[in-house]
C-alpha cells in the first residue's frame, strides 16, 4: 500500500473521531504566559526551598510552613528521625545530595523496595523539580497499564485525614490550578507535616488529556489521590502538563482497598489565589507517605 492510499484510509475514519480531535483549542497567549509565570514561580521558590532546607545536622521540622516564616527558625517540634533517613545511598549518583535534603524511610527492612524494582522506579529529584518519577507510569502504553502503574506506586495514604478539598482551576486559564499545584509541591519539598487533617488537591484544568478519568466528586464521597508521573518536566521545564500531576480518582477506578481513602468534605470551585494561599498551611502530603504506601503495594 502506498502512503497516499493509507492517507485515504485514515481519511475515512469515523466522524466521531474527527470531531473529538476538532474540539481542542490552541493555547491562548494568556495561558501561555500563565504557564511561563507558573514555571518561573516554581523554579524560584524551589531554589529558595533548596537553600533553606536544613542539612544533615539539622533536625527536621514538623511545623507548618508559611511564606512569611521562610527566614525564621522553622522548628516548633522535632521528631526522632532514624539515622538511615539522612544516610546517603550506597550508590553514588546525581541524586546523592538530594538524599540529604529529603527525609527517606529506613532502608533496613529486607522486604522493602525503596526506590526501584524491575517494574517501578521512584526517584527523588531536586526540590525545584517535581519529586517523583514513576517509570512504569511514564512508559505505560495503554490506559490499563497506566492504571496498573498508578495502582502499584501511587495511591497515597494519609492517616487521620478527614477532609479533602478539591480545587478546580478555571477552564480558560489554568493558572490558578498550577499555582495550587505549586503550593502543594513546595510544601512537599519542605517536608512539612502540618497538624491538620485537610488536603488540598489540585485537579487538572478541563483541557487536560484524561479529564474523563476524573470523577465528579461531591461532599461525602470517598476519594484517594496520588502523584502522577512527572518525568517530562525534567526534560522540558516548560512542559506544564507535568504539573497537572495530581489526580483524584474514585477507589473503584484503580481498585484499592476502602480504608486507603479519604473523604471529600468540601469542594472549592475556581479558587482565587488568595484562597489557595490561605490553605497553604493545611496541606498534608509528604514523600514518606507516598513512599511508604508504594513500598507496601510493591511488597504485596
Amino acid at each position: 500500500m502506498t502512503v497516499e492510499m493509507f492517507d485515504n484510509t485514515v481519511n475515512g475514519i469515523r466522524p466521531e473521531l474527527i470531531e473529538e480531535a476538532a474540539d481542542i483549542r490552541p493555547t491562548t497567549d494568556r495561558t501561555r504566559y500563565a504557564k511561563y509565570a507558573a514555571v518561573a514561580a516554581v523554579l524560584a521558590i524551589g531554589i529558595i526551598g533548596w537553600a533553606l532546607w536544613p542539612h544533615n545536622d539539622a533536625p527536621i521540622s514538623t511545623a507548618p510552613h508559611t511564606p512569611a516564616a521562610v527566614s525564621e527558625p522553622r522548628i516548633e517540634t522535632t521528631v526522632s528521625v532514624p539515622e538511615e533517613t539522612t544516610t546517603a545511598p550506597t550508590t553514588v549518583s546525581e541524586t546523592e545530595e538530594i538524599s540529604y535534603l529529603i527525609p527517606q524511610p529506613p532502608q533496613s527492612s529486607s522486604n522493602e523496595i525503596l526506590f526501584s524494582s524491575d517494574e517501578v522506579t521512584v526517584e527523588i529529584c531536586p526540590p525545584a523539580a517535581v519529586p517523583m518519577i514513576c517509570e512504569s507510569i511514564m512508559e505505560a502504553q495503554t490506559r490499563e497499564e497506566f492504571r496498573q502503574g498508578i495502582a502499584a506506586v501511587a495511591d497515597t495514604v494519609v492517616k487521620d485525614v478527614t477532609e479533602v478539598r478539591i480545587v478546580y482551576g478555571p477552564k480558560e486559564s489554568p493558572y490558578t490550578t498550577y499555582k495550587t499545584l505549586y503550593t502543594v509541591q513546595i510544601l512537599e519539598c519542605y517536608g512539612n507535616i502540618p497538624e491538620t487533617d485537610t488536603i488540598v488537591v489540585a485537579v487538572p484544568d478541563s483541557s487536560y488529556e484524561d479529564m474523563d478519568d476524573i470523577p465528579n466528586f461531591k461532599v461525602g464521597d470517598e476519594a484517594l489521590f496520588f502523584l502522577r508521573d512527572t518525568a517530562a518536566l525534567e526534560k522540558d521545564p516548560m512542559d506544564l502538563k507535568s504539573y497537572s500531576g495530581y489526580y483524584v480518582m474514585s477507589p473503584a477506578d484503580i481498585g484499592v482497598v476502602k480504608n486507603d481513602t479519604v473523604t471529600v468534605d468540601s469542594i472549592i470551585s475556581a479558587s482565587p489565589d488568595e484562597q489557595v494561599y490561605a490553605n497553604q498551611s493545611k496541606v498534608d502530603l509528604t514523600f514518606d507517605d507516598f513512599r511508604s504506601k508504594a513500598n507496601d503495594l510493591l511488597n504485596k
Binding site: 475514519i13 473521531l17 495503554t142 488529556e209
Partner: peptide, 20 residues
C-alpha cells in the same frame, strides 16, 4: 478505515487526538 477507527478507540483519548 473501520479497522483503524476500532484501533483508535483502544488508544487513550490524548493519543487518539494526537493521531487524528
Amino acid at each position: 478505515s473501520d479497522a483503524i477507527s476500532d484501533w483508535l478507540m483502544t488508544e487513550s483519548k490524548r493519543s487518539r487526538i494526537m493521531f487524528v
